[in-house]
Design a protein around this nucleic acid. Structure first.
Lengths: 122, 122
DNA sequence: ATGGCACTTAACATAGTGGTTAATTAACCG
DNA sequence: CGGTTAATTAACCACTATGTTAAGTGCCAT
């Protein structure tokens, strides 16, 4: 379970690549919760959730603190920030790809006139 | 290799969770390339790269087109956009967490004036 | 102290990942 | 045709991931 991934960005993306873990993060984004509370909505055993939380914790996406018998989980967003930074590198890119799509759609609607950039708003 | 993941966001994050694949995407962000060209910088067999490209293609992150013997690969950013959208949900969150950090750092510099907590910072 | 509650850890089954080498397909070239 | 180049597919390997059930840990209550 505990791989020696070493690469923080890979660890983050890998942790996010599971829908259960993403749901847990979304739940935590509206407030801290115990392990049991987090497990409740899922049709899955408690140990399974516990493992997911371990993955999230090792990825630095949550922190756990003990409170009597309970463990309180809190979201921790620094790795999400790094992941977003990496993805942001492509923002310019996809904006231009969407522009190209816009140009293409425009060329269908009013073709072959010349160097025209009429943005047909859908 | 070809799992039945079905969830597009999971597929995207999973594809991004490998440093080789992220490097390939970065390479493609500066222009299309053939499989051979993409493989060249890596100390890895061609089939391994081919598999990585299959993963990227199934995630919708690249498209391949045939040109004679060569396959040209092109980046395709729509899934990156979706991944970014998901992460953006936490932007407000991490901004407030960073604010909390700022407050905490401030409290170190000017301590014990009133409701002071005994936080020993590691 | 004993019993229940909230979790975690252990042991296990099954399947997926990421790499290898060898064989195969397909296009080009003499 | 036969040979070379470009890339994929096949067969295989070691390791990782995700789930299970059962047992263990530690806190709290009666």
């Amino acid at each position: 379970m505990l791989s020696a991934m070493a690469d923080p960005l890979s660890t983050t993306f890998s942790a996010l690549a599971d829908p259960t873990r993403r749901e847990i993060l979304q739940r935590l984004s509206s407030g801290d919760a115990t392990v049991g509370e987090l497990a409740e909505p899922f049709a899955m055993s408690l140990p399974a959730i516990s493992k997911h939380l371990t993955v999230l914790e090792r990825a630095g996406l949550i922190t756990k603190s003990r409170d009597g018998q309970r463990r309180h989980c809190r979201i921790s967003v620094a790795p999400l920030q790094d992941a977003t930074s990496w993805l942001e590198l492509y923002r310019k890119h996809w904006e231009s790809q969407l522009d190209s799509l816009g140009d293409y759609l425009a060329s269908i609607h009013r073709p072959s006139t010349e160097g025209d950039h009429e943005e047909t708003p859908s």
